[in-house]
């Protein structure tokens, strides 16, 4: 356990990642522009690039990353499974079907986020309803239901892709790969991050105990059913808002809580805020890379998070076995 150094590092990395996102890009607006901006001496172009383009995008990336990491951490507790990720219950599939349907029907692009949100929540309720209708609420049943529903969404996504005219495919594929640069507004993601933290932190100790098993938690005085409902709802909302902001970005929600748990343990009162900070920083950095690696061209940020996430995760897995 290296709690204190980890928390100090996180407190530094978060603002640093945001500053870096403001300071680099495909144009030659750099750190010096930030400096002149602070002294109100920036050129209109510098203001435009830093304040209108990079700032909202960096904040959207930060909020999305924070939400994904929070949702991952919460679902891992809910399912008592450290390998759960925000999409395990089919939320991203539902969101993708909603978003892609709007694109297929040729409706206004402004309808894509609401449709994604409706799809995400619809999937959440469907999985929840099915797991509930089957009787006992057991993590295994929830996971299996989620996996099957997600597979169903996957088939629908393939169907939509094959019915779509070729001209619509680039937008659909980029949406599926996850992409912060879709002119997304950062406020829903940032607001939801705060809301999740404010609601989940008082539940922190109960969550710690829930992580040790549902019956164990009940015997220790946790009202498990209500808590599981709350966690399920919060995690689903968080994922829905994240997916709506930036598409289905993988690995952040899986790797971040897992990595932090190895560093600072599983006390949700530390883990949840730390996950939000690290998830936010990680996605902000990944998005900055996506904008700059082959600038002026862009990569989908989901590609970067996966390329960072796969080796890190394999390393953690390997290390924990050794």
């Amino acid at each position: 356990m290296r709690v204190r150094p980890t928390l100090i590092a996180l407190a530094l990395i978060a603002p640093a990642s945001l500053l870096l996102a403001l300071a680099v890009g495909s144009s030659d607006v750099t750190v010096s522009a930030l400096w002149s901006l602070l002294r109100s001496e920036a050129t209109p172009f510098e203001r435009l690039v830093v304040l209108d383009l990079r700032l909202p995008r960096a904040l959207a990336a930060f909020g999305t990353g924070a939400l994904l990491a929070l949702s991952g951490a919460l679902l891992q507790v809910l399912l008592r499974n450290p390998l759960a990720d925000p999409y395990v219950l089919g939320v991203s599939g539902g969101a993708a079907v909603g978003a892609l349907l709007v694109m297929l029907l040729g409706l206004s692009g402004a309808l894509v986020p609401p449709a994604a949100f409706v799809g995400a929540l619809g999937s959440t309720l469907l999985v929840f309803g099915l797991a509930q209708a089957a009787g006992a609420w057991a993590p295994e049943r929830l996971i299996l239901t989620g996996v099957v529903i997600a597979a169903g969404w996957g088939a629908l996504i393939s169907l939509i892709l094959s019915l779509s005219p070729d001209t619509d495919l680039p937008a659909m594929l980029y949406w599926l790969m996850g992409d912060v640069g879709q002119g997304a507004t950062p406020w829903p993601a940032l607001g939801m991050t705060l809301l999740v933290l404010v609601l989940a932190l008082p539940l922190g100790r109960s969550l710690n105990i829930l992580a040790r098993g549902g019956l164990q938690a009940e015997v220790l005085g946790v009202s498990v059913r209500g808590l599981e409902w709350a966690v399920y709802l919060l995690a689903s909302l968080a994922t829905a808002v994240a997916v709506t902001t930036a598409g289905a970005i993988g690995f952040v929600g899986l790797v971040v809580p897992h990595m932090l748990r190895l560093l600072i343990g599983n006390d949700q009162r530390l883990l949840l805020p730390a996950s939000a900070l690290l998830g936010g920083s990680l996605l902000t950095l990944a998005d900055t890379l996506a904008r700059t690696v082959i600038a002026p061209e862009q990569l989908p940020v989901g590609v970067i998070t996966a390329m960072l996430g796969v080796p890190v995760f394999l390393y953690l897995l390997y290390r924990s076995r050794a």
Binding site: M1, A211, R212, Q216, V219, L220, G221, L262, N266
Partner: peptide, 30 residues
Amino acid sequence: RRRLARRLALLFQEHPDPFPSTVLETALIG
């Protein structure tokens, strides 16, 4: 449940422990 938990404790046969935790943290759940 909360009131009951101050009167009655149950030691389970198994403890799956899917997540890391320290000995002190585990004792403190009581």
